[in-house]
Amino acid sequence: MIFKISKWGHGAAIRLPAAVMAGLDAQIGDVLIGTLGDNSLTLKAGPRIPSDQRKALAAYLQKAQSEGKTTLTEVLEDLQNDIAKQKEDQPDD
């Protein structure tokens, strides 16, 4: 398949045709995991996020980006730390 890189805001985007979305069993709002190789990009379907949690995740990612976090590893480490802190703050039953 051939994909065209288009301008999108201050960045760039690749449009995924319906056939690609179907092949990935992906829906709008789903996460794709990308791996960079030698002059290549491999995309795989990521974990499916329930629709009621997508807005919260989008807000969290936007916050992380505004704090200068640029890699998935940084964002996931931050998220894991936040989850651990929330568990510590919860009273024991």
Rank of each mutant, 00 (worst) to 15 (best):
P91W: 07
Q80C: 05
K85V: 10
K63E: 14
Q86A: 15
G29P: 03
P50F: 08
A19N: 08
V75G: 01
E88H: 05
L36Y: 05
I28N: 13
A13D: 06
D93R: 10
Q62D: 15
A64Y: 00
A56I: 10
A18Y: 08
L16K: 04
L57N: 01
A58E: 14
S51A: 13
G9A: 06
V20M: 12
S66P: 00
V20E: 12
H10G: 09
L43H: 06
K87M: 13
I5K: 04
S66H: 08
S51W: 02
P47A: 14
L57K: 00
K69H: 11
F3T: 01
A19Y: 12
A64N: 03
L16D: 05
V20C: 07
L43D: 05
T70A: 14
M1N: 07
A45V: 04
I2N: 09
I49T: 04
L57Q: 00
I2H: 07
A12G: 02
V31Q: 05
W8C: 04
Y60R: 08
L76V: 15
T42K: 14
G68H: 06
I49H: 02
L61T: 04
A56G: 11
A58N: 12
S6K: 13
G9H: 04
N39A: 14
D25K: 14
A19H: 10
A19R: 11
A12H: 11
L41Y: 09
P47V: 11
A22H: 13
D92A: 15
R15H: 10
M1Y: 06
L72Q: 01
L24S: 02
T42R: 15
G34Q: 07
K44Q: 15
S66K: 11
D78L: 03
K69S: 04
S6D: 08
L24H: 02
